[in-house]
Write a protein that binds this DNA or RNA. Structure first.
Lengths: 161, 161
DNA sequence: AAAAGATCGTCACAAATGCAACGAAATAGA
DNA sequence: TCTATTTCGTTGCATTTGTGACGATCTTTT
């Protein structure tokens, strides 16, 4: 094997980590999004908003955006839409009248709890399919990634996505 | 601390794998996309098309879509745009005149090679930052995911993304 | 306390994306 | 061979998303 003309293809996409990561995320997201899309007709920003409020209780729109990495306008629209459904209500802040505190109504909370349950099932099922080792590797890999790019988020831009 | 009303939150987003995967992919993709966006003004579909053609040589639009998980129309528009730049040319297939074989021009190839180099650097740098263990875990986790959802892609839909 | 600047959430507009339908061409079936 | 069906790639249209600017409000500076 002289390998004299290695000159190989400069990039094998299937081996390129950002690409793999992206495809994997899309594949998984798509499968999970079927749950909230089919059952409730929620969009992804709506689901994220619901989930964030479910987890933290009352938050401002900005806080939701920061935490869930969504653009201001995405949050704004998701909030509007959830409000239409009566899943969320706005409470004005008397101390700072620019902001509103958003919280789930009982109906919103109920949907949230249902979806949260489905989320857990989805994850459990996923882990089962990945196998113990695969699941462990994935989680460890994600943790590594998170500690890596957490710094950059701080340095670079405040509102991404 | 009685913890009597723990009232546990049903879902911790930061621990939910699909969510983590998504955020990680977005963060990484964004950082890498800066390279081709800033230096060449390429969109993501355009970059993917370029990279796919660079790797495989001449392909039809459909083949590009299948391989890179892009919708027909995305590919069609990316091809059009790359053609405008003179980075790609179409060669008609005399045996089947519905299809066209797409291939990079020398200029396209040159840009591709440059970007491929940047891609490798990006990945090398990423791995360095993740550390040996982190990188290994991530790759293993992705592999596990890929073998998992590969089946579903076959069963479910042919053109995703 | 007035002026300048920053922040909050929204809206109008532009760009990107997905969907459905299409013409052209190939294939399958009668 | 003639018709029906499928496939290829593009286009028009509707939806989603991002960008920039805005009014309102708060904060900082002078």
């Amino acid at each position: 094997m002289t390998n004299k003309r290695l000159e190989r293809v400069p990039l094998i996409l299937e081996d390129f980590t950002p690409y793999r990561l992206n495809k994997a995320a899309e594949a998984i997201s798509r499968r999970f999004s079927n749950q909230y899309r089919e059952q409730y007709g929620l969009t992804r920003p709506e689901w994220r908003t619901l989930a964030t409020l479910g987890q933290f209780g009352a938050l401002t729109a900005t806080a939701i955006g920061v935490h869930s990495s969504m653009h201001k306008t995405k949050v704004s629209r998701a909030v509007f839409s959830l409000e239409q459904r009566r899943w969320l209500k706005r409470r004005r802040d008397e101390a700072d009248r620019r902001t509103e505190h958003l919280e789930l109504t009982p109906a919103g909370l109920k949907a949230y709890e249902h979806l949260a349950r489905l989320a857990h099932e989805f994850e459990t099922d996923l882990f089962a399919k990945l196998g113990e080792r695969g699941a462990r590797d994935l989680k460890a890999g994600l943790s590594a990634l998170e500690t890596y790019y957490r710094q950059y988020v701080a340095v670079t831009s405040t509102d991404d996505d």
